[in-house]
Every structure is written in C-alpha cells, then in structure tokens.
Design a protein around this nucleic acid. Structure first.
Lengths: 226, 226
DNA sequence: CCAAAAGTGTTGACTGTACACCCATGT
DNA sequence: ACATGGGTGTACAGTCAACACTTTTGG
C-alpha cells in the first residue's frame, strides 16, 4: 500500500454488499450465500466483500457476484451505506450496499467449490442472516417498491419479450396485492412504457398472448405532482 | 488504533460531506466553506471531513457542520456514497455524502478563527468547487426535488408557522416554476399536510395572512400510483 | 383611493377504480 | 364441451389545469 497523505487518518474497512432480487414462481426472492469465514462462518448472508485498491463499490459488488454466484451483467444501483460502527463484531466495517435485479430464467447460479452455495430464497423465509443483512434487505425491498411505482425498472425482472400477465405478475408479487387486469392494462398503456410486438406466444390450452417489449432501455420517472 | 482482524485489508479513507440547502431571498442556496488544507487549499468546498473511530458518517457530518459553520440540529439524511477511486488526488477517498435542509432565519453562521468562512451561495453561482463537489450538489438537488414532490420535507425549509405564500415560494423556488395560487392551495389542502392556526400575520400594507403549521413532524409519501 | 398580497370557485380534461363477459386455444 | 388464461368497455368519483375577481390592510 503506498504511503499517501491520507495514511495518517483512521480508516474503517469498507465492504460492498448486494441485494439481488428476482421473481420465481410468483415469489419475490433474494440471493444469499453461505459465509466461508468468521465472523458468522456458515451463516447465510448477502454476497459481499472488501473493496480492493482502485475499485469502486459497485465494481466490487459485480466482481463478488461473479465469484460467489457466477452471476454477471445484471441491473444494479447503489442502495445505501450502512455505517453503524457496531454493525460488525470485528470493529468499524462500513458496507456500501447495492440493489440488483435479475430475470430468473436469464441466469443460472454456479454451485462449485469457488462459489458459496448461492441460493434465491423467498423474502419472507430467509431465516437468520449475518450482520445487519436483514435490515439491508428490508431497505432494498422498500427501494424496489419505490422504483416499481415510478420507473420502468420492471424490465430488469422480465425477459426481453413478455406478456401483459407476466408484467402484472411482477407488480402483484412485489406489492403483494391483486390488481385489476383492465385497469392495469390501461395504466401501463397510458404511460407508454411498453410496445406490442407482432408475436404471440402459445402456452398450454389458453388463448395465445401478445408479446410486449419495453419502449425505453433506461429508467424514467412516471409523473410529477407539481 | 487497535489491531483487529480487519487490519489486513486495504482501506480507502472515508469522509463525510454535507450539502446543506436553504432558501433565502427566494433563491435556493448551498453552504460551502473555504478549505483550510491541501489539496484544493483555499478553494471552496462542501463542509466535510474524516470519520473518527466509533462515529458514523452522519454523526461526523453533524460534528463538522458545527465545527466549520456553527450549525446544529438540522434535518439530515444520507444522500449517496461517492467512491470513484480517482475522485481525490491523494488516492482512494470515499465520501458518504449527506443532504441537509435548514430554515435560513433559524440559524446564523459562525465566522470565527475556528470556522472556514461558511457561506450560503445561490446554487447557480457556486463557482469552482473542490473534488467532485459540484456533482454531489447536483445529485443533492435532484434528491431535494424528489423529496419535495412526494413528502412533507418543505417543513425543514420553513419556520414553525408560515403563510401559504411562503410555502408556495419554497416550491416555486426549488422547481424554478410559477405555480397557480388556487390550485396549489387546493392540492396542499387535499393532502392534509398542514393545518391552519388561529393567528394572522401582518406584514406591510397588505391584507394579513393566516399562519399554518405542518400536521405531522415526519415525512410521508404522498401517493402510490398502484 | 391606491398598491400589494391574501383569498376564493367553476369548468373541462384526464386519471383512478369498480365491475362482467366473450375469445382462442388445448385437451 | 369445458377449462384456462387472454382480452375488452363503461360509468362514477377524484384530481389536474386553466382562468379573474374581491378582500384587507398600510400608506
């Protein structure tokens, strides 16, 4: 480590942790791994680790997701920095937490000797988690609901082409609330978030559904009350 | 510094910076101080400094506001963590930035040998600032607009009792947009954010205005589109 | 009586919400 | 023929946006 003029200052350690959400079987699930080291060795925790020289926290989060779960190229944004000096029994360890979304069918988790048994668990049944990771997940869940209300972030939980029902299922699952089919369709159409393709998908003994895609690749705020 | 098990890891330095907004003369202003040390010695910058052992970043932000500007007891929330490893010429210095609001008349800035010439400058005329502080202020301004749209945060920019015009002025100043007096009043009344007192205030040669107070001390989200 | 800010209502367009039936397909 | 999810319209209530005049005071 080079001697710089910042060397003289007290330095807490800094880690990056990630809350990866996905929807599977109409359940909101979160990714956890089994801790390989003390403290909390063997307990499940959010994937995370120390920031290496020259890296930022999101780069670190991405590196760790790849190492610990074989997961790459997913939507991610910074969530919040958890910096209670008592949150880690080893002493001050600041966690810059991130929030990520993935379409479950787009990825497969690697379970190998290098990974740490990465598993998507229903949000309500994570069991005990290391550190303050339950609290971090709660915070991420709030963020998820907020983003869903005001942006087109649902696209990160869906394949490129999807049916109206699949989109509605994302909203219903995350808000734990049944929505009216007709009203939901009108609302989404008015917002202009998605456009119809010319394809239909047949799935079982129902009428085939039209496939849609999102109109814009990046996030937009829906409305401004003033 | 105690030898803990985290000692072996690379540690960037961590600072806390604060963006304090206020409204004065119908202008949105931001607090800056003059840097006492290198790098950027003499350049204006956001108040900020290194986190001390046992402190969290918000505690640090509050301590520094008090030391560098004589400012205490104001609304504050965590904003974002800026962690580009190249943002500080000395090497990796992570900044946990905070967002604060104050009613200009409620405070007076201390200018003494201990402080660093704390000044509220109009947002559009801050001039050159140290590090990436311009970017941090931009981010804070976005947050401010978002909070104003969906919460009752305006109360942190107003005295306990205020007139409808003063409230409207907060919104108009921050959104840089004239609002219709009647529609604004109806909207705010419908939200139930504020309640009338029995007092009127006379100010000059106009009809006296009714004074209002906020109904709830803490933030509430206005509405959910789903 | 004049200047200045305070305060007040109506209308038309749009959005939200509640609600029930027919459609296209596979079995 | 039936079960399954796909797809559609209408009516009422609430909200948004545009717009102008009267009131109360001090000077």
């Amino acid at each position: 480590m080079p001697k710089t003029s910042t060397q003289k200052f007290y330095k807490p350690s800094i880690t990056a942790d990630v809350v990866v959400f996905t929807i599977e079987d109409s359940l909101l699930k979160v990714l956890t791994v089994k801790r390989a080291d003390e403290p909390f060795k063997g307990t499940r925790a959010l994937p995370g680790g120390f920031i290496l020289p020259g890296s930022d926290s999101m780069g670190t989060a991405r590196r760790i997701l790849k190492e610990k779960a074989g997961l790459e190229g997913i939507y991610m944004e910074q969530l919040y920095t958890f910096d209670d000096p008592k949150r880690d029994p080893r002493g001050s360890v600041v966690s810059v937490a991130h929030f990520a979304l993935v379409h479950r069918d787009a990825i497969s988790l690697e379970t190998s000797s290098h990974t740490q048994d990465p598993t998507f668990t229903p949000l309500k049944h994570t069991g005990t988690l290391a550190f303050d990771h339950k609290k971090i997940i709660e915070y991420a869940y709030e963020r998820l609901r907020g983003r869903l209300e005001y942006t087109n972030i649902a696209q990160s939980l869906l394949p490129k082409e999807f049916t109206f029902s699949e989109l509605q299922n994302v909203y219903e699952t995350i808000f734990s609330k049944k929505l009216d089919k007709r009203n939901f369709r009108k609302k989404i159409e008015r917002l202009g978030l998605i456009k119809a393709t010319k394809k239909k998908i047949k799935r079982g003994r129902q009428r085939p559904a039209l496939l849609y895609t999102f109109a814009s690749g990046k996030a937009e705020s829906f409305k401004n009350p003033f």
